[in-house]
Design a protein around this nucleic acid. Sequence first.
DNA 1: GGGACCGTTCGGCGCGGCCCGAACCGTGCC
DNA 2: GGCACGGTTCGGGCCGCGCCGAACGGTCCC
Lengths: 247, 247
Amino acid sequence: MTIGADGRGLAGFAALLADPTRAGFCLALLDGRAWTAGELARAAGVAASTASDHLTRLVAGGLLVEQRQGRHRYVRLADPAVAQLVEDLAARAPAPATPPRTLRAASAGTALAYARTCYDHLAGRLGVLLHDALLARGVLDRSGGLALTGAGVAWLDRLGVPVEPLRATRRPLVRDCLDWTERRPHLAGAVGAALCGRFLDLGWTVRGTGRAVRLTPAGRDALADTLGLDPALLAPPASRDTGPARA
Amino acid sequence: MTIGADGRGLAGFAALLADPTRAGFCLALLDGRAWTAGELARAAGVAASTASDHLTRLVAGGLLVEQRQGRHRYVRLADPAVAQLVEDLAARAPAPATPPRTLRAASAGTALAYARTCYDHLAGRLGVLLHDALLARGVLDRSGGLALTGAGVAWLDRLGVPVEPLRATRRPLVRDCLDWTERRPHLAGAVGAALCGRFLDLGWTVRGTGRAVRLTPAGRDALADTLGLDPALLAPPASRDTGPARA
DNA sequence: GGGACCGTTCGGCGCGGCCCGAACCGTGCC
DNA sequence: GGCACGGTTCGGGCCGCGCCGAACGGTCCC
């Protein structure tokens, strides 16, 4: 009531996400990449002029940052904290009752349910399996809150992911992120992002269409080797009916 | 773009906070207590009918829960996760340019800057000092993410705060919460809430007006004793000019 | 230079949200 | 029972916001 009872600041900020089009932009940008204004306009189904206006407001509000390049206006989420905020809100928002979809979309859905990026870290069934394996192997420990162990630091180092530079970022090292499809946590934070990037560098994973990710045979063997993950569990979706995609 | 590109759900949810009156309600309720509809209406400066409408929407949206008692409608934040969400948003929202205030408000501001509750845990200078002391004494450790140590569990147990029951809640044990006035983290999460409650039970702190909290002489001695905190640092604001209140 | 394309600005339209006052209902108190 | 009080419902007014199309400027390519 006294310190910051004035709701105008909060309301103005929340209003940025209170429009279906702007919210859709932010959800699309959750893939961590930079989109052009036109791409976003087409994805949202609005005129270019409308999208331009929305982007200006989102940038002014600090949710997005832009980068002009030639005749393109690239835009992406301002920082990981914004991604987390959008996710937290989306996780609490009711699903807008869009049960199935077309066959093609359903098939893409199973691929996404298997492995995808969530802003800048791994999500989907693969992300959850990884999270569980890291806990089982003692890389992570959650007896007193999720934390990276000393053994975990060494393990990451052997993998080629030095932890020290990550401490310099103001971002938490490790963080839970609730998985949309699995409804269980996967690993986010600076370590989650570094791990996701390292897997791509090592060729253990490759990017698919959109935010989908595929595990390569080399990746499957490597994960089985370094984390003791059962290769059978790591099998990619064999066909479109490999487990229902709970969207 | 594919899994949840539909921004309607997120937008509808964010819209709950996108109104100055509703946002003000939620900020007021951040003190963790239940308010009546009339109290909120007066605090926000709107008609009772307007407040009633807003409350209905906030309850329907899951942000608030209500409890009818006689002719009163008590309402409070639905759970700690909502409190965190509101705080995260408020922390990112720009301050609505309300530099000083009346003298009386400024004086109340210094009391709040010294010690207050933040939903259900301690905040303000006292909260930050406590947080730092817990780190220094090894109750908390943040070498791999903020975590409660084994020694911390024992320390809490000696204080009369058994940790095991706290694990049963789906709430994280320990969590950072950015302090509005100090701009540094204080301790939130299940342990932060339990600690705040235990201090009140022990008479180390007492509630002041609003969300303000005062440290009792017994509390000052006890904190100095059990945590090695310098009693001089713990001194309450002697007068209104004890350090600027950065609101 | 010509043309295609990306993005922005401007006017104008229409819907929806926010607010209030008045009337009404239920509770609690005298 | 009478009255005060808290809360709700309803109708109506108003402002703001989101959307589009058209016109314009900039950039890149041929």
